[in-house]
Design a protein around this nucleic acid. Structure first.
Lengths: 320, 320
DNA sequence: TTGTAAGCGTTATCAG
DNA sequence: CTGATAACGCTTACAA
């Protein structure tokens, strides 16, 4: 493999001059520059990035920790990261973790080993403190609301609150909620909003996990089988809400007459399904997280807005 | 930053011994091994992967080229790649291209610059030959059916054929198809199946692009507005099919009485929507592609199966 | 504007 | 089993 030294020899210059040409430095005489470029062509030289990384002491690569790729919320965030990374000529490595702590630790290890310069933690199982132990090795940005960390997030307490307020306004009293995971920060915030706002909030009306369309089907079946049914459901994901919606309709339940449904995320699917939803800017979360991890030099907290989008799955309570 | 030399000094051994300990080589005396391990703890040593990469001449990283992350087909493949990569202790860099040639070229550049050892090209805009020019730098595996390349794919001609045969068997004559992109290899194969099999195949009954739920809504509107309507639609993605389905139902069209619908991919959504679909093993495509790019040393072609899953959106033609 | 030479932090060969 | 020492391919003071 031809290297910078071969180039120098053929071009009749020193390696530093070659390096300067390669990096578009000023102060290189035109004839030398051309000689180097000529040699590059002649020898079919291609620069070895790994060597550049080592010599520069940086990789222009960040790491992304997320539980699943195959889920609209995460893939939307990833899309946001990918876009910004491309523009900034950064690369990123991804750790798809299934929420397994061991996998998350591997990302942390990569950070300490200087493989990546920073980490975007989209969602995680490990305690935030575990991540912060590695702060010395590079910036760590979360996409969830933890105290004292750099984070880009949506206020899920307020988000859920707005959904619940809407349902209460519509006359609903028996309201159930569906949470993605039992103990995630987001779920805890959402649960708090539920108990704070809904007088008749009940533990048994909290369903979890709510991550996939299949979860939606399960939640609907459970609702159908229960003897005291909520008249409204606030569901932490449009995907899941779609599953609930379709399964209920299949069973002859009328939405919104028999039950009101509100989803979350504002996924394009919700528009086509005419699902009332709380829309959040997923791509922007990813984009901003990328910005923080690469550009910011202090702990920053960015709160992105949500918006209640009323469509056809919510209405005034009509039954008991 | 403490390095291998510091370690050697503190442990009272040579750097080679340290390296041996680090790499679990045999032939290291127990006391020296322990001395090194002691030093590692003492100095809080962490190995620099970039240096390892340079010295070893390999990065244990592959590249993935794909147009969008935020699409169930691609994210499912990505999930398959991610899983296998994790197990094999490989990392991967992703180029999210929007089908822009310039972006695809950057992935190729990374291959030639030895940043990645191989490339999985899930879908692409550049001609396959452009990719093959870079074969010297590492293995390139496609997830589409091109001649003379390593590839993992589903026979989309046969897949579409099976869907069309089903519709014909059900008595449909006026059949339309929806293709993801106009000129992709998959679309060409599918179009061929259409013209080969459907006697009354018409150019105007081919709708494209069909990639997003919104495309589904558009396709449905177009169908509603047309004066000669197909009685059946074979749609290249479940996502799009869902959009078509919901939009038609909204307009009072009965599925399958008024129109039969078949989707593609076998996405979980199709089950909940009771969509007839042609199911393919997306994750396995990714997984096998990873295997080929990292393990195989010859041009290999792997054809993965599809399966027609009949559900509630197809029936015998009842109207004209 | 250019060149020399010392890194960057490892691995790996080869002699002992 | 162990240690010198030469790679790996590039960047970057520093001196000229």
């Amino acid at each position: 493999m031809t290297n910078i030294r071969d180039l120098a020899r053929v071009a009749g210059v020193s390696v530093s001059t070659v390096s300067r040409v390669l990096n578009d430095h000023p102060y290189v005489a035109d004839d030398k520059r051309q000689a180097v470029q000529q040699a590059i062509l002649e020898l079919g030289y291609i620069r070895n990035q790994t060597a550049v990384h080592l010599a520069r002491g940086r990789t222009k690569t960040i790491g992304v920790v997320l539980p699943y790729v195959d889920h609209p919320y995460y893939s939307a965030i990833l899309q946001g990261i990918a876009r910004r990374a491309f523009d900034a000529e950064y690369r990123f490595l991804m750790w798809q973790t299934n929420y397994e702590e061991e996998r998350e630790r591997l990302a942390l290890q990569a950070l300490s080993q200087r493989e990546v310069e920073g980490l975007i933690v989209v969602s995680h199982a490990l305690a935030p403190e575990e991540f912060l132990k590695f702060e010395d090795y590079g910036r760590i940005v979360f996409c969830e609301n933890h105290p004292n960390v750099s984070t880009v997030y949506v206020d899920h307490y307020a988000g859920f609150r707005s959904g619940l307020e809407e349902l209460i306004r519509l006359g609903h009293e028996k309201i159930g909620i569906c949470l993605s995971r039992e103990h995630s920060v987001n779920s805890i915030a959402r649960k708090k909003a539920y108990f704070d706002l809904v007088p008749d909030a009940r533990q048994e009306w909290i369903d979890t996990p709510a991550l996939t369309v299949e979860d939606g089907a399960r939640i609907a079946s459970r609702w159908l089988a229960s003897n005291e049914r909520p008249t409204a459901l606030l569901i932490a994901s449009d995907y899941v809400a779609s599953g609930v919606y379709m399964t209920l309709r299949k069973a002859g339940i009328r939405v919104p007459e028999d039950i009101s449904l509100i989803g979350f995320d504002g996924h394009p699917l919700s528009a086509v399904m005419e699902l009332t939803t709380i829309s959040i800017p997923c791509e922007e979360i990813g984009g901003e997280a990328f910005r923080l991890v690469t550009e910011s030099d202090k702990t920053e907290r960015i709160i992105l807005p949500f918006e209640l989008v009323s469509r056809k799955t919510t209405s005034v309570r009509t039954n008991v």
